[in-house]
C-alpha cells in the first residue's frame, strides 16, 4: 500500500502536530516530499518545502499520498482537495471531524477510487519499508509478516508490543480510526493484504459497538480467506451503552456486543485472544 519510495505529502505541515510528526516520519524513513498550508507557501519544515495548494505540491514534487493533520473545521476541505488531486491513500489523523463531513469525503473518495484511512487514526506503518504515515510510536514496531488492523490507537501499540516481544514482526499496521464513520474497514484491509506476498497472517483488533467485526467475519467465511486470522475484542466487560433509538437495532439486529463479535469470528474459523499477550501465542501455530 505504501513503500519506502512513496512520495508523501503532509497537509497541515506547519501546525504543531503536523511539524512535530513530520520530523518523526522523516526520522523513521518516510519519503516526505512536500507540505501544504494555505498562505504559508515558500516556507520549509524540517527541510520539506511548503506549498499553498495540493495541486502545486503535486506538480512540483510528484507527491502521491497524503497525511492530513489539518484541524477539524478545515479538514474535510483539505481531504477533498487531496482526493481531487488524485492522492492515494489519504490518511486523516485529525480528530473531532463531524460524522456528516466524513460521510461526504468518504463518499467522494469512493467515487474517485481513492482509499481513505481514518479519520481519528494513528495512521499506517509498514515496518519492512521503514515507512509510516501518521503518529504511531515506531519503536514499538518490528519488521515481519503479520498484518495488523485496529479500531483503537493505544490498544494497537499494546498488542504490537506483545508481538514484537515475542519475536513476531509486522508487514503492515493500520489504525482504522475511532470515529462512527471511517474510510478503510476491516474488509478493505483484508482485501488489501490478501495478495500481499509479505503477509503470512492477519490480526484484527476490534471493540464493542458497530458491526465491522461481524462483517469482517462474514467476509472471511464467505471468501474462504486464504490467510490465518486472529482477533482480539476489547469491551467484553463494558457496561451496556445507552439506547440511542431503534434504527440501529433494526438494521444490525443483535450485533455490536463482544459476544456477537466473538461468535461471528469463531464461526468463521478466526481464533479470538482473551488477553493482548495471547495474540502472539495464537499466531505462533500459524507462522
Amino acid at each position: 500500500m505504501i513503500e519506502s519510495t512513496t512520495r508523501v505529502l503532509v497537509q497541515g505541515i506547519t501546525g504543531r502536530h503536523g511539524s512535530f510528526h513530520t520530523g518523526l516520519m522523516l526520522e523513521y524513513g518516510t519519503n516526505v516530499v512536500a507540505g501544504v498550508t494555505p498562505g504559508k507557501g515558500g516556507e520549509e519544515v524540517h527541510g520539506v518545502p511548503v506549498f499553498d495548494t495540493v495541486e502545486e505540491a503535486v506538480d512540483e514534487t510528484g507527491a502521491e499520498a497524503s497525511v492530513v493533520f489539518v484541524p477539524a473545521p478545515f479538514a474535510p476541505d483539505a481531504v477533498m482537495e487531496a482526493i481531487e488531486a488524485g492522492l492515494d491513500p489519504i490518511v486523516v489523523i485529525t480528530e473531532h471531524i463531524p460524522a456528516h463531513d466524513t460521510m461526504m469525503f468518504v463518499q467522494l473518495a469512493e467515487e474517485y477510487g481513492v482509499r481513505i484511512i481514518g479519520p481519528n487514526t494513528p495512521g499506517i506503518i509498514v515496518p519492512p519499508e521503514r515507512t509510516k504515515m501518521g503518529i504511531m510510536p515506531h519503536q514499538v514496531f518490528s519488521e515481519g509478516s503479520v498484518a495488523v488492523a485496529s479500531r483503537s490507537g493505544t490498544l494497537t501499540y499494546e498488542i504490537v508490543h506483545h508481538l514484537t516481544e515475542a519475536g513476531i514482526g509486522q508487514s503492515v499496521c493500520v489504525g482504522l480510526g475511532g470515529d462512527t464513520v471511517v474510510g478503510m474497514t476491516f474488509i478493505d484491509f483484508l482485501e488489501m493484504v490478501e495478495e500481499d506476498p509479505d503477509t503470512e497472517a492477519v490480526v484484527l483488533i476490534g471493540e464493542i459497538g458497530g458491526s465491522a467485526e461481524e462483517e469482517a467475519a462474514e467476509y472471511i467465511a464467505e471468501t474462504d480467506y486464504p490467510k490465518p486470522v486472529v482477533a482480539y475484542i476489547a469491551g467484553r466487560h463494558a457496561p451496556p451503552g445507552k439506547r440511542m433509538g431503534h434504527a440501529g437495532a433494526i438494521v444490525h439486529r443483535g450485533q455490536g456486543t463482544a459476544e456477537s463479535k466473538e461468535k461471528a469470528f469463531l464461526e468463521a474459523g478466526v481464533e479470538v485472544a482473551k488477553t493482548p499477550w495471547e495474540v502472539p501465542e495464537l499466531l505462533k501455530e500459524y507462522l
Binding site: 483503537s152 493505544t154 490498544l155 499494546e158 476489547a234 466487560h237
Partner: peptide
C-alpha cells in the same frame, strides 16, 4: 485509569479476567 478507549476497555476486561472487580 488508562489512555485510549480501546486500551481502557481492555484493562477493565483484564482485571475481570484475573478475578478482580473493576
Amino acid at each position: 485509569i488508562a489512555n485510549g478507549a480501546g486500551l481502557t476497555m481492555a484493562t477493565v476486561d483484564l482485571v475481570k479476567e484475573f478475578g478482580g472487580e473493576p
